[in-house]
Design a protein around this nucleic acid. Structure first.
Length: 451
DNA sequence: AACCCCCGCAACCGCCGCACC
DNA sequence: TGGTGCGGCGGTTGCGGGGGT
């Protein structure tokens, strides 16, 4: 099996490895360890190039390689990780112990991709993700990765959170990050009203569960509606903002003063409203946090924040969970790992301006410049690899714009639409009634917030 | 039994990033 | 700062096996 030994340049052998060659390679590495691939062949008495030796070892001979059929759990994990990470096989492999990137890649190409494509054909129609048009091939590509979804039987209002996410998506387009978002989530087109393009974003699988979802493909009607990704994202934003109480009050005041009916979700905020909101927020934060941000920015924060949005950060953020974007709560578990106590609740934590990944979210690499979410001040620069074991790493995120598209109440839930759920609670059609004064009256606020 | 075709997968290829000088 | 070497990664190739006719 394998390629033909078609080239013997420099006397180097190519093609399938013999048992004798394998033994030589194993013996050498057992004695000298891995590395030094360039000189290894000569030292080991192999007529191979170093690259070939490394590949043979990494993909086949390594003792900690698990071969054979993929379990259902492994399949699901590959699907989920691929939705988040794309074809980053090495990154996927790092989350599948004893499986090599090559094996996963092959398995995807020969099994899962085909299956995904078949299931993807069940999607009858779909709007592009966000106002910006993605390339047609990109859309097609994403459909290959998307599981089939039952189409909504009737149009329902797009959630406010989805509108915000649309803005984020538009900002990211046509970056690879957007592609990541597209492939990581199932898109349901929910409204085609003439004067607005809205796309609600929902994940199919629940997130941060102790057990992987049974299937990404089909959700039976009697299963609870999955947690809205958009709501989760916005939850995080709200959780971030709850550290700035004045800011919350300002927002609440602004928002409540400009909304008087149940259609608040459909209204787009005026630019001036957003600007005022941002300014008020920055003032509030500046004056209420005891010098966290000594330098008060004099401009509207929103644009520069968005401009400085680190795409890699979001991409990595997508990649850190099993479904792309998610949140975790205290005690949530994923693959046996449990979220630790939130550093946000830790009085000794001085870095109040940083958001914190915890528990199941912490898996991946965040690199580049990390800035404060509200002031754009750089809090630190470096690459940090955070794994489960580094669950308390600080991690700043930027989510701005569209503030009046989500709603901040006493709880951390900032937006909900019919069927949205949070902490296992599914919102009914009208639970977000604005005029009630309590945004989510059926919602039980969290005691603490974990980012 | 012979032939054909499709598929799985090991291995190769080319590119990229990083380290070093 | 640019050049070079090396390791790593993702895409692609094509042999060999198995199933169908």
């Amino acid at each position: 099996m394998g390629r033909t030994p078609g080239c013997n340049t420099d006397g180097l052998k190519k093609g399938a490895w013999t048992a004798d060659e394998d033994q030589k390679l194993i013996a050498y590495i057992q004695e000298h360890g891995e590395g030094g691939w360039r000189t290894l062949p000569q030292k080991a008495g192999l007529q191979r190039c170093g690259k070939s030796c490394r590949l043979r070892w990494a993909n086949y001979l390594r003792p900690d390689i698990k071969r054979g059929e993929f379990s259902t759990e492994e399949e699901q994990k590959i699907i989920q990780l691929h939705a988040s990470l794309g074809n980053r096989w090495s990154a996927i492999a790092r989350n599948l112990p004893k499986r090599t990137d090559n094996e996963i890649k092959n398995y995807w190409n020969t099994h899962l991709k085909k299956r995904q494509a078949e299931e993807g054909t069940a999607l009858v129609s779909r709007k592009p993700f966000g106002p910006s048009s993605a390339p047609p091939d990109a859309i097609h590509e994403s459909s290959e990765c998307e599981p089939a979804q039952p189409q909504p039987t009737s149009l329902r209002p797009a959630s406010a959170s989805a509108q915000l996410l649309n803005k984020i998506a538009a900002k990211l387009a046509p970056s690879t990050c957007l592609e990541t978002l597209k492939t990581s989530q199932s898109l349901q087109t929910l409204s085609t009203e003439a004067d607005k393009e809205v796309v609600d974003v929902h994940i199919i699988s629940n997130t941060c569960q102790s057990e992987p979802p049974p299937s990404l493909a089909v959700r039976s009607p009697d299963m609870p509606r999955p947690v809205s990704t958009s709501a989760r994202i916005l939850n995080k934003m709200a959780g971030r903002l709850t550290t700035h109480l004045h800011c919350l009050d300002t927002l609440k005041s602004i928002l409540s003063g400009s909304s008087d009916n149940h259609n608040f979700m459909h209204r787009s905020p005026s630019a001036s409203s957003l600007s005022e909101t941002a300014s008020d927020m920055s003032r509030s934060i500046s004056t209420s946090n005891g010098g966290i941000n000594d330098q008060m920015p004099t401009h509207n924060h929103l644009s520069p924040l968005i401009d400085s949005f680190d795409l890699d950060l979001l991409e990595d953020w997508n990649g850190v969970s099993d479904c792309g974007v998610s949140s975790s709560s205290l005690g949530d578990t994923y693959n046996g790992w449990e979220s630790p106590v939130s550093p946000l609740n830790n009085n000794n934590n001085n870095n109040n301006n940083a958001l914190t990944f915890s528990g199941c979210e912490s898996m991946g690499t965040c690199s580049g410049e990390v800035k404060d979410a509200m002031t754009t001040e750089t809090t630190y620069e470096s690459e940090m690899t955070f794994g489960y074991q580094d669950a308390s790493d600080q991690y700043a995120q930027y989510f701005t714009d569209g503030f009046s598209n989500f709603f901040i109440g006493d709880s951390h839930v900032v937006s909900a639409c019919s069927g949205d759920s949070h902490e296992g609670k599914v919102f009914e059609e009208d639970t977000y009634s604005w005029n009630n004064g309590h945004l989510f009256e059926n919602y039980q606020p969290l005691d603490s917030h974990i980012f």
